[in-house]
Structure formats: structure tokens, C-alpha cells
Computed example of a mutant assay.
Amino acid sequence: MARVSGLVRTGIVALSLWAAGALAPSSAQMTKDGLNPTGANPTANSVNEEFLFKQEPKIGGRVSIPDQKSANLIQPQGREYRAFREDYLPWIGGIAVLGILGLLATFFLLRGRIPLDDPGPDTGKKILRFNSFERFAHWMTATCFIILSLSGLNYIFGKRLLMPLIGPEAFGALAQWAKYAHLYLAWPFMLGIAIMLVVWVRDNIPEKLDWEWIKAGGGLVGRGHPHARRFNAGQKVVFWMVVGFGAAMSVTGLVMMFPFSVTDINGMQVTQVIHSLIGVVFIAGILAHIYIGSIGMEGAYDAMGSGKVDLGWAKSHHDLWVEEQQAKTASGPQVGKRPVSPHQVPAE
């Protein structure tokens, strides 16, 4: 009886296998587009990677350690950031920096160095333009900005331009020290921005006179110089650029300096995009400022060099400010409580 029962079960299994084989479509029965005769796609319901990437901002699992960020396996938005970082940012940075250098070189060839106009050459008399504290704040901020800019440009172009020249070992050491400089010099840079805002904001409030200065070309084109107070319209633009961009760079820099304290990985990447874009535009703007304050205009460097400028230069570029200062010297010191030197007397 047991033997008969076993034979019956064996027969049932064999019959089932034969029926399954008969019903399953053979390779010859599959159509060229991968569909079986019933029209169904056997992989239609399988998980598609790209579809999954579009549905979720990140793909992760579960971990038992406190750092839950380690559960993230794939972060698809990182591909967009990588494309920006590797493909677009070098082009944007190169166009901004090389473009402004090309424009300044062209302007210098066409215009030359802006000379000292009427009332003539150096008068031999000096007027105090910036005191020692103002110059300290300016040069501290400027020095930090230069190093921050160079270390930031190394982040963009270093491995493309510098590493092939000095080798990976030297470049790695240089990049590490550049990172340290970028992190630590950010603090005095932010302090300098705050000091300049407090010290100079009163003299940089826009007014109707600034529009007249802009319409006249600010002395950069044509001859003569329009009326201006302590800061002309061009200098006010630079001031507010430094304050605005400096504040934006400070905020985004602090977010990256303390990662994941404010936002997640997606926010960190967006923050770095903003930081880098503002940075290259900031560098381009400061290059124009450096040009005007050095080789672009005769006598301009003295303002932040010694702090004293020739009275003739001051009357050419900031005539209304000179009138204010001469009115002050009639009854007291020119700046604060500093005594007026014999060379800081008003011109007759």
C-alpha cells in the first residue's frame, strides 16, 4: 500500500512539472522586444535605479550607532553638486577672474593712468585721509582676503593647474596648509568687515550727488572729476560690495565650518555652491578696486599707504570733503582729537 502511494505521488509531481514546462513560453516564443506572447514584460515591475533616485532625496538603511548620517548609502543630489564642482565652477571662476583682468588691461591701454588734474601737480601740502586705526582695519581685512582668495582658487584650480607642476605630494601639503589658512584667517577677515562697517557706514550712505558722479563717469572717462564727499559713488559701491559679499561669505563659511549643525548634506552642498559663486565675483570686484587704488590712479595709494594725500589730489577727487575738513581745521583738529601737523593746513 505504501509503495502504491509513493508511485501515485511521484506521478503527480511528474505531471505537474510537465504541465509547467508546457505552459511556460520558450525562447522561440519570446518576441524581439522582450515581451512574451501574452504581451507582458517580465521586468516591468522590477526596481529601476533612476526611478528610485527620482523618488527619494537619498537612499539609506538603518544603523545602530548614534551617527544616523552613516545610514545614507547613496545621495543622488551629490551628482548635481559634483557636476557643478568639476564642470561648471572652473569655467565660471576662470571667466570671472581672467575676464576682469582682461578688461582692466584693456582699460589701462586705452586710458592709461588717471593723472592728477587741476589744481595741478603735487602742492606739497598733505591732508589726513585715513587715520591709523582705519588703515589697520583695511590692511588686516585686505591681507586676509588675499590669502582666502588664493586658497579658495586653489580649491577650484589647484589640481588642474598646480598639481601637474609641483607633483601630488607637494600639492597635498600645500592644499592642507591652504585649508588651515582659510579656516583661521576667516575670523580676522570677519572682524575687519565688522569694523569697516561701523567706521565707514556713515560716509557711504547713497545720496543724490552719487548719481551725478556716475553720470559724469567719475573721472574715469573724459577730463576732470565730478564733485564728491569723503567717498565717491564708485567707492560706495565697493564698500557695500565688501560688506554684503563679506557677510554672505561669512554666513556660508560658518555653516561649512561647523558641518551639519544647521543643515543636512544637501544644504551643505547648496551652501558651498553659494559660497564659491559669491567668492569668484568678490575676487573679480576686488581686483578692480586694487587696480584703481594702485596703478590705475595717480596718488590714490597714499590714502591707505601713509594715510595722507596731497591736497591737490584731494581737491580733484573729493572736493566737498576737503571743504568740510578745512572748515574743521579753522577751529580744531582735522580728525578726532589729533593735532594738525604743519603740512595739514588748508590751502590758501
Rank of each mutant, 00 (worst) to 15 (best):
residue 136 F to R: 01
residue 148 L to V: 14
residue 78 G to Q: 12
residue 91 W to N: 05
residue 92 I to G: 01
residue 139 W to D: 02
residue 116 L to W: 14
residue 128 L to D: 03
residue 100 I to T: 15
residue 72 N to V: 10
residue 89 L to N: 07
residue 100 I to F: 09
residue 76 P to F: 07
residue 155 Y to V: 14
residue 143 T to S: 13
residue 76 P to N: 11
residue 131 N to S: 06
residue 78 G to S: 13
residue 146 I to N: 06
residue 92 I to S: 02
residue 76 P to D: 10
residue 132 S to R: 03
residue 73 L to Y: 08
residue 89 L to Q: 11
residue 122 D to W: 13
residue 81 Y to N: 09
residue 89 L to Y: 07
residue 137 A to G: 04
residue 113 R to G: 12
residue 68 Q to I: 01
residue 102 G to H: 03
residue 64 S to A: 09
residue 81 Y to T: 06
residue 78 G to I: 03
residue 110 L to F: 11
residue 66 P to D: 01
residue 57 P to I: 01
residue 133 F to W: 10
residue 93 G to N: 07
residue 58 K to Q: 11
residue 102 G to Y: 02
residue 125 K to I: 04
residue 89 L to F: 12
residue 57 P to Y: 06
residue 64 S to I: 02
residue 128 L to R: 13
residue 136 F to S: 00
residue 114 I to N: 02
residue 88 Y to C: 01
residue 147 I to V: 15
residue 121 P to E: 12
residue 71 A to D: 03
residue 95 I to M: 06
residue 144 C to L: 14
residue 146 I to S: 03
residue 105 A to V: 07
residue 101 L to T: 11
residue 59 I to N: 09
residue 77 Q to L: 11
residue 74 I to R: 11
residue 154 N to D: 07
residue 70 S to H: 04
residue 66 P to L: 01
residue 70 S to P: 00
residue 148 L to S: 07
residue 102 G to C: 11
residue 134 E to W: 01
residue 121 P to I: 02
residue 100 I to V: 15
residue 63 V to P: 04
residue 75 Q to G: 03
residue 125 K to Q: 14
residue 64 S to P: 00
residue 60 G to T: 04
residue 59 I to W: 08
residue 57 P to V: 00
residue 57 P to L: 04
residue 120 G to R: 15
residue 61 G to I: 05
residue 109 L to H: 14
residue 77 Q to H: 12
residue 143 T to L: 13
residue 72 N to T: 10
residue 67 D to K: 00
residue 77 Q to C: 09
residue 91 W to K: 13
residue 67 D to Y: 00
residue 100 I to Y: 08
residue 62 R to Q: 14
residue 132 S to P: 00
residue 139 W to I: 04
residue 140 M to E: 09
residue 141 T to D: 11
residue 143 T to K: 01
residue 110 L to A: 15
residue 138 H to G: 02
residue 55 Q to V: 02
residue 124 G to N: 13
residue 89 L to P: 09
residue 154 N to S: 08
residue 74 I to Y: 12
residue 152 G to W: 05
